[in-house]
């Protein structure tokens, strides 16, 4: 039995050589966990022609970058990625493996966990190191990863521990871990690894691939004006845009507004959209389902505008305006323009 615990690994998600924000957020969180455990923070970077990402990963705190380049790893498909990661786990025995809870991360991580017979917790919103006493099986564990996530539609927060084989695997929601400032002076070690892939790993063929970058980056926005079903129509969403523009903010939306076809999914805030934490969040015509609130309650100031005084959104708002958004928003624009 080897008592030395393994390192903290972060799966680095990239698209066309651009690292996903969530991966850098996880490098920062991973570094914090690794320091507590006295181990290294290491990155798994898969793709083809992605070596230029390595310095960025050092600057955010990676001690080691495992670089696995192969033309069969571009574009992303799940089977070869799972094979490479599984081989890496078998060779190096990491203690913790973090994935972003993105579309790629959420299809890749379970495939790996299933083969490794490791536990996997989805969509974590916080990670901590602590001891765990399994009272049912009368076993105690030290320095385990506390995997904290909302469950049951966001109505409960569960702390979950993996008690089987390492690595302790989780996917983590985008935008919930803080990204520290990079330090370009930091250096790490580059380890190149050859991908061992067979024909069975490449049976899925990409016939066509169409994608474009998101229209908007809500995660970094400081001021957001979000509209919901109460806005009433696609045309009326102009009011939301007008207020956002006047205040120098971005536009957001609830799922109901997206489902109604008034605005694209890129703008959706909440459990199935983006998690935001702006300086100011103004929501109009959003009743505030728990799924929506999950994506915005950490905003510094929340102004809610709704005609229904009992709307759940008011329970998380700092300022409550019970009124018609068609009346209130123009007044806000006018008042702001007059003061500013």
């Amino acid at each position: 039995m080897n008592n030395k615990i393994g390192n903290v690994w972060v799966f680095i998600e990239q698209e066309g050589g651009k690292i996903a924000d969530v991966s850098l957020e996880l490098v920062c969180k991973g570094r914090e966990l690794a320091q507590q455990l006295g181990v290294k923070t290491e990155a798994l970077l898969l793709g083809n022609g992605v070596e230029k990402c390595v310095d960025t990963l050092y600057s955010y705190g990676c001690d080691t970058v495992y670089l696995i380049e192969d033309e069969r790893l571009e574009p992303f498909t799940v089977l070869p990625y799972a094979k490479v990661i599984m081989d890496m786990i078998k060779t190096h025995h990491p203690n913790i493996l973090l994935f972003g809870a993105t579309m790629k991360g959420r299809e890749l991580a379970p495939r790996v966990a299933s083969e490794k017979l490791a536990g996997l917790t989805a969509d974590c919103t916080d990670l901590q190191i602590d001891d765990f006493e399994d009272k049912v099986n009368k076993k105690s564990y030290t320095d385990k990863l506390m995997q904290i996530r909302p469950a049951f539609g966001g109505n409960i927060i569960a702390t979950i521990v993996n008690t089987w084989d390492d690595p302790q695997m989780v996917t983590v929601r985008e935008g919930v871990m803080k990204m520290d400032a990079p330090d370009p002076a930091r250096k790490g070690e580059l380890v190149r690894v050859k991908a061992e892939l067979s024909d069975t790993d490449t049976v899925i063929k990409v016939i066509e691939r169409v994608r474009q970058d998101k229209e908007v980056d809500l995660k970094g926005a400081q001021i957001i004006v979000a509209g919901g079903y109460g806005v009433g129509s696609k045309e009326n969403f102009k009011l939301i845009r007008d207020l956002a523009e006047a205040l120098g903010g971005e536009v957001g939306a609830s799922r109901a507004a997206v489902d109604a076809g008034w605005i694209s999914h890129d703008y959706q805030i909440g459990q199935t959209g983006v998690t935001v934490r702006p300086r100011l969040y103004i929501c109009a015509g959003i009743s505030g389902s728990i799924q929506h609130r999950a994506g915005m309650t950490e905003s510094k100031k929340i102004i809610a505008i709704n005609t229904d005084p009992d709307a759940p959104i008011f329970s998380v708002a700092h300022y409550a305006i019970v009124g018609d958004l068609n009346d209130v928003i123009p007044k806000m624009i006018k008042a702001f323009k007059a003061k500013a």
Partner: peptide
């Protein structure tokens, strides 16, 4: 089941 629930907090 490798994952165990340590605790549950109601929101």
């Amino acid at each position: 089941s490798p994952t165990k629930v340590k605790n549950i907090q109601n929101v």
